[in-house]
Amino acid sequence: MDWSVIATHLPFLMKGLWMSVKLATLVVIFAFPLACLIAVGRISSRSWIRYPSAIFVNTMRSNPLILIVFWFFFLVPIIIGRPVGDFASVMIGFIVFFSAYFTEIIRSGIQSVGRNQIQAGLSTGLTYFQTMRMIVLPQALRNMMPALITECVIVFQGTTIAYVVGLREFLNSTFLITEITLRPAELYTFAAIVYFVVCFAGSSLARQMEKRKVRT
């Protein structure tokens, strides 16, 4: 083992890691509001809203992320009519894909609150909108917090898939350095450790919140 190879190429690798973090953050920022809209559609009483939302969610959830990335990588330039770059194509694929998973988390969060809470709110003279905003959503958000954080960890893990289209995120950068230095053992071990540390921190946070939720 010769770990100096990592020290030598650390700046390049860290640039890759920064790209992974940026990608994951942007995906969460865009996918979450989109998912809120779709989740409201999923529980709507109007079937012409409910069915398309359900079809979208189930389609995304029954395809692998890597295939969705290929789809968007191929389709986005055709639909837009001009190349938009690797980053934008991958981003759009990720956002669409993960919004489906966020949708299901939000939906079950809202449904976990229960009809009686809505009725209790309405019975005290609050409007439906007020009930949702002041009674249902705060509880729902609290209930779904651990699942949301777990999903953010999964998004971060998912960014490795940008590797397949050559986007220079952390895994792709590692791969590139192994091609140059022929030291896969050190480099992939290093990558695994870095991913582990970040993801373990995230999932520990989720577990803490889960415990706090159970206690109160």
Binding site: Q157, G158, T160, A185, Y188, F196, F200, S203
Partner: peptide
Amino acid sequence: EFFRNIPLLVQLFVWFFVFPLM
């Protein structure tokens, strides 16, 4: 914890490129 907190793609690479060397 070990297997859940490392992306599957990274695990694949470790098994494919690193494991035989070990």
